[in-house]
Nucleic acid binder design. Structure first.
Ligand code: MN
Ligand code: MN
Ligand code: ZN
Ligand code: ZN
Lengths: 145, 145
DNA sequence: AGCCCTGCTGCGAAAATTCGCAACAAATAG
DNA sequence: CTATTTGTTGCGAATTTTCGCAGCAGGGCT
């Protein structure tokens, strides 16, 4: 999951924002830490190389990069937020409430639902990263026994 | 939005839980305050008649009543959680990111999506109260101008 | 070089949320 | 009836997240 630093930097600068060392460190951390990283794990990671970088900045930059659509945000099972690098195509998840297993879904699974909301309610749903909760095959089978 | 106290109380007791004054007060507060009430507004409300009832208890009881499916939980636009009395039928929302307007959807709008996840992934989605974010007719039109 | 303007950060305080634990109270057993 | 167990709460501390504000720093301008 490498990110093209120069392309993102240009995008930010073009919008009038600045590419600060803190933003680069935080973005690097999110990418290195992988999927669904929490603010606290980002803070722990960057704090090693930049001890003065504050928690507030971590939260602010994660929000900021999400607004700029460089990161996406997702609600975890416990209600907390996690972030990851926005890929070229959004994806979503099925999360089992029993075993916490996580299935990845392509964006296309929401196509017909989004179309229906658009035609029925004239409302354009804008989703980049959603988790749906429920129960997976295995847990349904073992529960039935 | 009145709730049948005796029926809920029986349900709780039958499961081995207790119906405490705190739980009754908090449930009453949620019902009186209407849709999408926040923990803080519940606390403010109950605190008037029960000054010793603590914030921790408010959070715990809201979680508890949600587990028992007496309340439902929903993520608001700002990421915070809100609660409301679980009706006989779940409902969902379309929330405009521009004007914050809120449209209510019947549970049935998710039927075909849930069926698709069940058949394609053998995963049973369990949703009681979801918000989808996007842009409403009016805001799309004024943005286009 | 200076001078603005504005974006951004660090800091500490505040607010929101969770946690551990001792005390309490309702149900239960004996 | 007392003893025990177990669910529940209040309290205070810890943790997480937000906020306000003063000051720094980059970029433009002269
Ligand atoms: Mn993901
Ligand atoms: Mn609702
Ligand atoms: Zn499972
Ligand atoms: Zn709107």
């Amino acid at each position: 999951m490498p990110h093209n630093t120069t392309e993102i930097n240009q995008r930010l600068r073009k919008s009038g924002y600045r590419v600060t060392p803190q933003r680069q460190l935080i973005l690097d951390a999110v990418c290195q830490l992988g999927e669904h990283v929490t603010p606290e794990s980002v803070y722990d990671h960057v704090h090693r190389t930049a001890p003065t970088l504050s928690r507030a900045t971590v939260y602010r930059v994660l929000h900021f990069l999400t607004e700029q659509r460089i990161l996406t945000m997702v609600h975890m099972a416990d209600g907390r937020l996690a972030y990851e690098l926005a890929g070229p195509e959004p994806h979503h998840h099925l999360v089992c409430r029993t075993c916490d297993s996580l299935l990845e879904l392509p964006h296309s699974v929401l196509r017909s639902f989004r179309r229906a909301m658009d035609s029925q309610y004239d409302f354009e749903i804008d989703v980049s990263h959603v988790s749906f909760f429920g129960h997976c095959t295995d847990c349904r089978n073992s529960a039935g026994a």
